[in-house]
Amino acid sequence: MILVTGATGNVGSAVLEQLVEAGQKVRALVRDPAKLGELGRKVEVVKGDLAKPETLDAAFAGVDKAFLLFTGDDLAKLAANAAEAAKKAGVTHIVMLSSSTVVQAPEMQIGRWHVEAEAKIKASGLAWTILQPGAFASNTLNWAGSIKSRGAVFQPTGDGKAAPIDPRDIAAVAVKVLISPGHEGKSYMLTGPEALSAAEQVAKISAAIGKPVAFVDVTEDAAREGMVKAGLPELFIRAILEAHAMVKAGLGAHITNTVEELLGQKARTFDDWLKSHGKAFQ
């Protein structure tokens, strides 16, 4: 039995779907089972929350391997809760979704959160594999509102580039290391196959939807103002601005071939991702 957490998100849902396609016995840990939709009929479902240890015994009971994904500002606590429940249940292998900031910029807030979470998993004594993806192609869905309402994307990243990875490729790597041996004790940094600036991604979105879309390189103050108006907490605003500054400084453009090396096929491009998600921007 393989447990998948974060099963209603971009990566977790893809992991769930691909494990089902691979014929694996799967259980999903979710806060809201209704969000699983049709997938919920193909897997076992346990309602619970990694932030509530009392809900985890049922989720981890009988589980051999687990895919763990943590969100929020207390990743270390969530990781500790999951590790304790996994160890108690006799789980043999944990695959954790972390972040490339652990390698690229561990001094950043996002990097620190993931460094601390990784440490909890590694200290559990269980076999582990850490996946460290960079920017997700799906992060651009955050632009959909301003593209639809204003025909533009506003972001303080200048000409800085990132190598966006398709969540389906992250999921495929997760499935690979969950169901095949030899990945224990390893960390894999994952990226897409091409480094693109925000302006270049916006141009591709524009071409995909057949409408003009502008990229506006705003100041950090302007970006902050927008996030404050959107109701984001200050801690997350600072973390996001740090990430934008990292990209603007040219620290996010590193490309790895890990996806291709592990899967035997090239990583999907941003254009590939757009073929499935372009309608979100129309």
Rank of each mutant, 00 (worst) to 15 (best):
M1F: 08
L3M: 13
A7W: 03
A7F: 06
G9Y: 05
G12M: 09
S13R: 14
L19F: 10
L19C: 11
E21R: 14
A22S: 13
G23Q: 11
Q24A: 14
Q24I: 03
A28F: 07
A28N: 08
L29H: 06
V30L: 08
R31E: 10
K35I: 08
K35Y: 08
G37R: 09
R41Q: 14
K42Q: 13
K42R: 13
K47F: 05
K47Y: 04
G48F: 05
D49Q: 10
L50D: 02
P53A: 12
L56M: 11
D57K: 13
A59W: 02
F60W: 07
G62M: 11
V63E: 04
V63W: 04
V63F: 07
F67H: 10
L69E: 07
L69C: 10
T71I: 15
K77P: 00
L78H: 09
A79P: 04
A80N: 11
N81D: 10
A83P: 03
A89W: 06
G90F: 11
T92L: 07
H93W: 07
V95A: 07
M96D: 03
T101G: 01
T101N: 13
T101W: 07
E107H: 15
M108D: 04
I110C: 01
G111R: 02
A117N: 05
K120R: 14
A123T: 06
A123K: 12
W128Q: 03
T129L: 07
G134R: 04
S138P: 04
S138L: 04
L141W: 13
A144G: 05
S149R: 05
F154I: 01
Q155A: 06
P156E: 01
P156I: 00
T157Q: 14
T157C: 12
A162M: 15
A162C: 13
A162K: 03
I165C: 06
R168N: 13
D169C: 07
A171W: 03
V173K: 02
V175Y: 02
S180A: 13
P181R: 10
G182H: 10
E184T: 12
E184L: 05
G185H: 11
K186L: 14
P193N: 09
L196Y: 03
L196G: 01
V202R: 00
I205D: 00
G210D: 09
G210T: 08
V216Y: 00
E220Y: 08
E225P: 00
G226F: 00
M227G: 02
G231N: 10
G231M: 08
E234T: 11
E234A: 15
L235H: 14
L235W: 15
F236L: 15
R238Q: 15
E242A: 09
E242Q: 13
E242W: 07
A243L: 15
H244N: 15
K248E: 03
H254P: 00
T256Y: 10
E261W: 06
Q265A: 12
R268V: 02
F270C: 03
F270G: 00
D271L: 06
D271H: 06
W273V: 02
